[in-house]
């Protein structure tokens, strides 16, 4: 992979020295936690339009993205630049997925605020003793000046993060999820972006005429309510604690599933306790940077899911018990 690129290896000390100076100087005048707080506000209020490159599992894909926030209402359009030209259009909580090749539109109601980039918890609840956060250096991303912030975990139970924040707006122009080996598990980067410029309503309209398309409705998402539970992990990884417990009814089911949410201030892990189904698969699975592990305990299917290493969800799932 490196082939003829040997020259840079001859002067790493020079680069390291320069970066060290830059980082030290930056750290003196910039508080990384303050930067991340600003980022939290920026992703909730910034309107933008641009091209996103997403790299995951050895695949790179490009997406055109338009995002506006008006009076707290999110409007977003994501267009896949290859394949079947899928378009996703969000207007508040209503999401339309347009499948041009199927001449169909799938419609779904959302009750959360998921967007392309989400915010972080406030500084009051994040980064206890489980992470270090630091300024690394200044770099350019999408033609704009950014500051690279690194969030490093202290142990193997959580991932690290690198975030390139626009120096002007604190909007994240590039993010990486970092595994135990230091390699990026997922990466999202703007190739080009326009921030806080006026976005005309037509930019959020479908790119294709859906007049004669079939419109397909989706049932509402999960129904949930607060409950108490006797289920708990007897060996939670350090730093994690229970945040909430809900009883949930999943679409297409009448069964109430117990959902316990654990968090360390940055990473979250959900544990689902459901009646054992013979068809249920056990063991680990993975979705990008998210891992899950299912185990059978006392006639129940226990599944832990989270954006954490596989070892973390396995440890939690296999140590759940009734107190």
């Amino acid at each position: 992979m490196h082939f003829s690129r040997i020259a840079p290896l001859l002067w790493p000390g020079v680069i390291a020295g320069q970066l060290a100076c830059s980082a030290a100087a930056l750290a003196e005048r910039v508080d990384p936690n303050e930067l991340l707080n600003r980022m939290g506000a920026a992703v909730q209020t910034t309107s933008y339009e641009g091209t996103v490159i997403r790299i995951q599992d050895g695949k790179a894909e490009a997406l055109k993205v338009v995002h506006t926030v008006t009076d707290g209402v999110i409007r977003e359009k994501v267009v896949v630049q290859e394949g079947n030209g899928l378009e996703i259009i969000r207007n508040g909580n209503e999401v339309h997925c347009i499948l041009p090749d199927r001449k169909s539109v799938l419609v779904e109601e959302w009750d959360d605020q998921s967007t392309l980039f989400s915010t972080l918890p406030s500084s009051e609840v994040r980064f206890g003793s489980e992470y270090d956060v630091s300024i690394v250096r200044e770099e350019r991303v999408a033609g704009r000046k950014t500051i690279l912030v690194a969030i490093r975990p202290h142990d193997i139970y959580r991932y690290g993060h690198r975030i390139w924040l626009d120096t002007e707006t604190s909007f994240p122009l590039q993010t990486q999820l970092i595994g135990e080996d230091g390699a990026a598990i997922e990466q999202v980067k703007f190739a080009d972006i326009s921030l806080n410029k006026e976005i005309h309503a037509s930019a959020l309209a479908p790119s294709i005429n859906t007049e004669n398309f079939r419109w397909l409705n989706q049932p509402s998402r999960h129904v949930k309510r607060d409950i108490e539970t006797r289920w708990e992990s007897t060996n939670l990884p350090p730093g994690f604690r229970a945040i909430s417990t809900h009883g949930e009814i999943m679409p297409g089911s009448e069964e109430v599933v117990t959902h316990i949410l654990y968090g360390d201030g940055l990473a979250n892990i959900s544990v689902f306790v459901a009646e054992q189904d013979q068809a249920s698969a056990a063991g680990p699975s993975r979705v990008g940077g998210s891992n899950s592990y299912s185990a059978s305990i006392d006639g129940y299917r226990i599944t832990a899911v989270g954006e954490v290493p596989a070892v973390t969800v396995e440890q939690i799932a296999t140590t759940m018990s009734l107190r």
Binding site: S114, T115, Q218, H222, L266, N268, S270, S292, T303
Partner: peptide
């Protein structure tokens, strides 16, 4: 069921303001 768990987890994490700072692409179900 496992797919529903992933989606439910994603929604809960977003409510907490965490977990989704990397790609939180629309996950239509």
């Amino acid at each position: 069921q496992l797919r529903q768990f992933y989606l439910s987890h994603g929604a809960s994490s977003t409510e907490q303001g965490a977990n989704g700072m990397n790609a939180r692409l629309v996950t239509l179900r």
